[in-house]
Design a protein around this nucleic acid. Structure first.
Length: 473
DNA sequence: TTTTGAGTTGTTCGA
DNA sequence: GTCGAACAACTCAAA
């Protein structure tokens, strides 16, 4: 008889190392690893195609790492887990916490139900540097601005949950129930094979995450502060998807960066990790963030409703080379350099006056690191309706940003190859180039490459007017 | 994690 | 050689 089977429910923590729930389950006895592809997901934001592709590979890797012991189900966790507990007399259930509002609600209900069944349930922090409820202002309310949040959080120091944990050795896997379906049967892989480039670029899974961190510690970290803004350089960590799926713990990245003694570069990376935490923090304290403007006055913002414009933006045919490069990078690789994310976001929301939710949902579908907390917090930041305190209406200039952050044009030329032979001087404003320069570069505007869909100067003015109108109402 | 415009200073070039 | 227009390069403040 299996006297004590410990169910370890994997969610956004698809790793063995630094996994407090798994460590505890293994310490307690036999482990039954479980993954549920939850259909509740579909209502509250089913993962996009790129995320599903990632998840497919990630689950395969995890399954293998667990000695093919991962039990996979499809359906509602609230039904599957209590049923497993009843049918197989499981005594303990462990998981690492998630912070999406719908998941918090569900997990709270589930915990209650399991306890009523006499099952011991314990949840852990598996994905944040600081629990959202640990960092509060003196009056007990949450911070709304990053800097004071980060300051307060930093004084908390290294809490217990930020301990680095090695993978549990010799996990004793329970015989118990078998899974319902295989990873393949979840049908996460796309029908059309668009993922060739993605496969070349990413190594999915815990090992891939460690590799990415190792590479970053050797190469990118020491030019991070200066280089992270230049999309053609390889100075960013590219850890976002790995962190999203929990293939690596943020405190692992943090502690290895500290060990690397990278001075200011290390400090900047740490603060970027803290930005990620801050997004979760905001989502926890303001669960309406994915749907509603955090600054209610933005409810009056006169958004444009223009499907054609949205599509041109999505397809990278705006006529602004840096914007188009970013949108095409996203489409081809499931990723976009952070600097360029800000530029394309500002362009959609400010120059086209399209509601940030359209941008958020496109990113959600295309990004391998699509994450409810980061995605909604960042889009609200770009749209300026978020909680941060910029005292002005920030509108990026896609031409200037290109000249400043892609000064040799390598990034833009790579993703917008039709402009590869346009001289640097006109790369970001091909409409200003003399016609012989364009024809020498093999470009006719309106044919190989589009005319700019709006004028930056004019649309900027319009955005400022819209902002003015909103403020008055 | 910005942009713009105004103001200032410095340089060039032709009358 | 001198003057001033034109312009580049910079700083700063405001939004």
């Amino acid at each position: 008889m299996s006297c004590s089977i410990n169910l370890c429910w994997f969610r956004q923590d698809l790793r063995l190392e630094d996994n407090p729930a798994l460590t505890e389950a293994a310490r307690q006895g036999e482990v039954l690893p479980l993954y549920i592809y939850d259909e509740d997901n579909a209502r509250a934001g089913a993962p996009g195609a790129a995320s599903r592709w990632w998840l497919h590979h990630c689950l395969q890797k995890l399954h293998r790492a667990l000695g093919r012991n991962l039990r996979i189900f499809r359906g509602k966790a609230e039904e599957i887990i209590p049923k497993l507990c009843r049918d197989y007399h499981l005594s303990r259930v462990y998981w690492n916490r998630c912070y999406e509002p719908w998941r918090i609600k569900r997990d709270t209900r589930l915990k209650k139900e399991l306890r009523a069944l006499g099952v011991e349930v314990q949840s852990f922090n598996g994905s944040l540097l600081w629990e959202p409820w640990e960092v509060l202002k003196k009056d007990g309310t949450p911070y709304k601005i990053f800097t004071p949040f980060y300051k307060a959080a930093s004084t908390l120091g290294v809490s217990l949950h930020r301990r680095v944990l090695s993978s549990p050795q010799n996990i004793c896997f329970a015989e118990g129930p078998s899974g319902e379906i295989s990873v393949e049967e979840l049908g996460l892989m796309p029908k059309i094979c668009w993922y060739k480039t993605m496969e070349e670029i990413w190594t999915v899974g815990e090992e891939g995450a460690r590799k990415a961190l190792g590479l970053f510690l050797r190469k990118g970290l020491f030019c991070y502060k200066e280089g992270r803004d230049f999309p053609a350089l390889e100075c960013t960590s590219r850890l976002a998807p790995h962190l999203h799926f929990g293939e690596i713990a943020p405190w692992r990245v943090w502690s290895e960066v500290v060990l690397a003694k990278a001075g200011e570069d290390g400090e900047v990376l740490k603060s970027e990790l803290a930005w990620r935490d801050f997004a979760y923090y905001l989502l926890y304290h303001f669960p309406e963030m994915p749907e509603h403007n955090m600054k209610p006055k933005f409810d009056n913002f006169p958004w444009e409703n223009n499907q054609t414009w949205i599509e041109r933006w999505q397809q990278g045919r705006t006529g602004y080379p840096l914007v188009d490069a970013g949108m095409r990078e996203l489409w081809q690789t499931g990723f976009m350099h952070n600097r360029v994310r800000m530029v394309v976001g500002s362009f959609l929301v400010k120059n086209l006056l399209i509601h940030w939710r359209h941008g958020a949902s496109w990113f959600w579908d295309c990004l391998v690191d699509a994450d409810m907390a980061s995605n909604s917090a960042s889009w609200q930041w770009v749209a300026e309706c978020g909680s941060d305190g910029a005292p002005y209406f920030r509108i990026f200039n896609p031409v200037t940003q290109g000249e400043r952050y892609d000064p040799r044009g390598e990034y833009t030329r790579r993703f917008v190859p039709e402009l590869a032979r346009i001289p640097q001087k006109y790369l970001f404003c091909p409409w200003e180039a003399p016609s012989e320069v364009l024809s020498q570069g093999g470009v006719t505007l309106g044919k190989e490459y589009p005319w700019p869909m709006v004028d930056v100067k004019e649309s900027r003015k319009k955005a400022l007017e819209a902002y003015e109108i909103m403020t008055q109402n």
